[in-house]
Amino acid sequence: MFEIFTRLADWLIYDLAGLSADTKMGQALHFFVEDTTKIFVLLVVMIYLIALIRASLNVERVRDFLAGKHRGAGYLMGASFGAVTPFCSCSSIPVFLGFTSAGIPVGITMAFLLTSPLINEVAVLLLLSLLGWKFTVVYILVGMAVGIAGGFFLDAIKAERWLQSFAAKALERGKQNGPVGPAAAESMSMAERHQFARGETLEIFGRVWKWVIIGVGLGAALHGFVPDGWIEANLGDGQWWTVPAAVLMGIPLYSNATGVIPVMESLINNGLPVGTTLAFCMSTVAASFPEFILLKQVMQWRLLAILFAMLLFAFTLIGWIFNFLFPVL
């Protein structure tokens, strides 16, 4: 099904532009054309279809659903909703406060917020088309595990102690008031769903297309210009220190999943171990300074530092585990 994009790239680069498939330049451009066209077509089709289905799911309904849930189930559900509910990262603070003032424990809210940037329909789609379904399943499970374990840990250390005082008060009030009744599910007509899906497609595409170009461009550069076998020869054994190094490198790099996944493809194809790649990419997507500055509005420095350390530790651990397991699998 995806072969048409390979043919298109063959035609454009090798036939039309006359570049040889044996040159670095030809290979890099081929990779770039094949991946960008494939990703763009997939994005438009899939975002529209997915938006059509989930048109009536929004953060308000998730909040009402999570409020008053038992903790154990709450982490799993928080992370699952984080994966499927769309919301813009600029809304993460209002969402945090909305959940908190409904009395939802900090850990469950954070399970939602941590999973959300890691897993979304665009990320899953890209992974499926570029790295295959096995890797996609692994990625989803790991992303959810980070959210669940992170949420569990934050509640275990009573993270609510280190919220800003107004947020802590809102949480107290919310707990006393108990959950409010679930918001009435809006029933939507097909025309309204189409309107919503059309808007979503335009909006998401408008936001991510440049990330795709940047990501694929970097991937192509890696593909074409890093000497063959260099990564494999130098980092291919998954030496223990390469994982924390990859996590640290990912922090100042700020990107979303869309931009990073094409780079992942290129790294893995060039022989970087799966664990190291996962660690690098998750760190790039989920641990970023702009996000942390935003969270400062609702959290004290101490909690921010804990959260940061927790993520670094989690990603390093993931990297080690997968480097250890995957050669065996």
Binding site: E60, P94, V95, L97, F99
Partner: peptide, 13 residues
Amino acid sequence: DVQVIMGYGVMRT
């Protein structure tokens, strides 16, 4: 101001 926004119960801006 996030506190004011919270006061209106708004989660999506």
